[in-house]
Design a protein around this nucleic acid. Structure first.
Lengths: 233, 233
DNA sequence: CCCTACGTGGCATTCGGTGCCAGACTAAGG
DNA sequence: CCTTAGTCTGGCACCGAATGCCACGTAGGG
């Protein structure tokens, strides 16, 4: 048939265009009612090539997400900073990836909410991030002996990220900087929870952790008295 | 054809038998190389009925997992205990569900590791638990205002659960009680991380959190001296 | 005995996904 | 310039998962 360029060898009609065409069709007709043939016709790429390049119909929706994962993964490997801070920065990178491409991420979110199958695919994607973060933190904070704490820290981070992300997806009016500010708040909370646990395993195995929650107005002496009463010796 | 019972109305040939037949075939021939027709032939249920009862080929593998989820979900709803403790107990219930049915869970783990597609399905399953725990904790610990902390706590709990579970799946020699003991250790760690965060939002907004890590040999006075030095007043 | 309800199996069909093959184009090497 | 290798492409045939439709058989209630 009629082909535009087709100067064999390198890339092709452009992944972006295919994704946008697919997103449009999915949004108009629903995900399941849209056939791959329709996407092929709308994007100017043959059915066969679609499967070759994207793997499956679902994967078309998450193609750019995959690229983002590669970017973040590489960033993590190269990051020289303190482990937990690097993981936080990587998660921020993911968030920015979403914020910078609302044309795809917003319709995809609506589709994901409507179709359990896509929901599972999205969940699998975040699980890949979590696994990557978990492995990274494990490697950088004491190895296998600390795998549990590293996994918990990664899970907490991903959870906070998803929480902030979902707030934006549900209400995309907020601008990116406000969302990123929310993310910083959320990671502060995670840091308070994860940092002591993550570092507890690094020193002696006999280390102990003390956690106290007290009203802001509590005096220093009163605080020490209560802690003293709670600690056995 | 030849049918065993078939006294119309209620259940049928038994979900368990179908699952076991499927697990055996998947293990022998691989997941993708096993056709639904083979499962139908081996289990004595027609192809059509398999799809009607399980939904998809994958779902046959996770059928009993789905039942477990229903059980745990109901348990959570009915639990009168302290929220975080209830969530921990529910997670322990999940773990026991795995431990008590190695005939299915162990082969399934091997299959899941080998096939990315099944891996995604498994991940989606744990995400369902996490979402359920998160909603539960949100509802029972301050509502939407505390959703972030509740989500982080749920993620931490699920992560710890999966960590312990995976240890057993990789090395099933350990007996159930040892695994459950490991789980208690793991949840202790999660409790230290999650409890202060989860409760921080419940009292006054002015509440503060103190976390101290110290060697096990530290004396009570020395501990109080250091904390006193660290607290501003 | 009829009627309703439900689980079942067979059949036809749709559609996602793969293997295979041939064509188009580029870059490197003689 | 021609050849060769490598890569991306589209068309075709095929497999198998999944769904809709229909007919059957068995239970329980009137």
């Amino acid at each position: 048939m009629e082909r535009s360029g087709g100067r064999g060898g390198q890339p092709r009609v452009g992944t972006r265009e295919v994704v946008l065409a697919a997103v449009r069709l999915f949004t108009e007709n629903g995900f399941e009612s849209t056939t791959v043939d329709q996407i092929a016709a709308a994007s100017g790429v043959s059915r066969r090539s679609l499967f070759r390049r994207f793997g499956s119909k679902e994967d078309i929706l998450f193609a750019e997400h995959d690229e983002l994962f590669s970017t973040v993964s590489a960033y993590l490997e190269a990051s020289p900073d303190e482990p937990l801070a690097s993981a936080f920065a990587a998660a921020r990178l993911v968030l920015r990836g979403y914020l910078e491409d609302p044309e795809v991420t917003l319709p995809r979110y609506r589709l994901v909410r409507a179709h359990p199958r896509l929901r599972d695919r999205e969940v699998a994607m975040t699980a890949r991030y979590q696994a990557a973060f978990s492995r990274y933190l494990t490697r950088r904070t004491g190895g296998e002996a600390n795998a549990l704490a590293a996994g918990v820290a990664a899970a907490s981070l991903i959870s906070a990220h998803n929480h902030v992300l979902r707030e934006w997806l549900r209400d995309p009016v907020q601008d990116a900087s406000a969302v990123l500010a929310r993310f910083e708040e959320a990671t502060d909370l995670v840091r308070r929870a994860a940092e002591p646990v993550l570092h507890a395993g690094r020193g002696s195995a006999e280390d102990r952790v003390l956690v106290a929650v007290y009203p802001g107005g509590t005096g220093r002496e009163e605080l020490l008295r209560r802690i003293g009463a709670a600690v056995q010796g």
